[in-house]
């Protein structure tokens, strides 16, 4: 190759590189700007007049939300069904008949819910007794630790939330959750929802979802739907408040939690 041609090629190469590079930087900076916009403060930054964002005056507040499930009060099949259906209906949980199902609140026999609490001589009927399961809202949630985008995060009141707008669907949180509480939308869930509740968004394919203690209801001043439907079999309250109903109940009853040895500190207590 003669030197002129080489110089020309080098020039072309460098300039193409510069163009691509600056395009990339431009894209990155606009993406970063978008990132700050997401914070909500961009409205003011742009000189636009706008209002302020506050939490609702009627919102329920707590240091750490928790739930006690009084298994003594779950007797008939209907006691479980009421709680599960209440959740399924208001949260648009699809009914997918395959292994790619979605579950927020569901039941498992005692021996599956507490596999480490097994023995051959268990109290009659306990081995197969259905246990209501849902996200444990851990104090030290492994799912939050592993999430690469912050799409799942812990609120100040202890609720482990999902940001469906941010989730990239890597499913690392599902591998990390020791309680099997998370579901992934392998497909568009809408065709599997019998009746769409218009007050709550459905999810889209490709994101992970789970129970979030009805954060949207707490923020409006309402108790979680399952608690409301349980006729007092589930007690919901603030663990940080020694006078709360849940603390009173826990102080006078024997309670267990799932896999306490993992140190995640679940916020769901089961009273036997």
């Amino acid at each position: 190759m003669d030197s002129d041609k080489r110089r020309f090629l080098r020039f072309m190469g460098i300039s193409t590189g510069l163009v691509i590079g600056s395009g990339f930087l431009g894209g990155l900076s606009s993406a970063l700007r978008l990132g700050t916009k997401l914070g909500g403060s961009a409205l003011a930054a742009q000189g636009a007049v706008s209002g302020s964002l506050i939490s609702s005056p009627s919102a329920l507040k707590a240091g750490r939300w928790a739930m006690a499930i009084d298994l003594r009060k779950f007797k008939t099949n209907d006691d479980y069904r009421r709680c599960i259906d209440a959740c399924d209906e208001i949260h648009n949980i699809p009914d997918i008949p395959t292994g790619q199902e979605i579950k927020w609140v569901w039941e498992e026999p005692y021996e599956n819910a507490f596999p480490e609490q097994q023995n051959h001589y268990l109290e009659k009927g306990l081995k197969d007794k259905p246990i209501l399961l849902m996200c444990n809202q851990c104090e030290y949630p492994p799912c939050v630790r592993v999430c690469p985008t912050g799409a799942t995060f812990k609120r100040r009141d202890g609720i482990v939330m999902m940001d469906y707008h941010r989730c990239i669907g890597c499913r690392y949180c599902m591998a990390a959750c020791p309680y099997g509480s998370r579901s992934f939308n392998f497909q568009d869930p809408r065709p599997f929802i019998k009746h769409i509740c218009p007050d709550y968004p459905t999810r889209t394919k490709g994101v992970v979802e789970k129970c979030d203690f009805c954060a949207e209801r707490l923020d409006k001043g309402l108790l979680p739907a399952c608690v409301e439907a349980s006729n007092g079999a589930m007690v919901f309250g603030d663990l940080d408040d020694p006078n709360s109903d849940i603390r009173k109940l826990l102080s006078k009853s024997f309670s267990i939690r799932r896999k306490p040895e993992l140190g995640t500190q679940p916020s769901i207590f089961y009273i036997l």
Partner: peptide
């Protein structure tokens, strides 16, 4: 493997 491949840049944005 991503469920939402269009959002892959979220890993760098956040």
């Amino acid at each position: 493997d991503l469920g939402q491949p269009m959002r892959v840049m979220n890993v760098l944005l956040y």
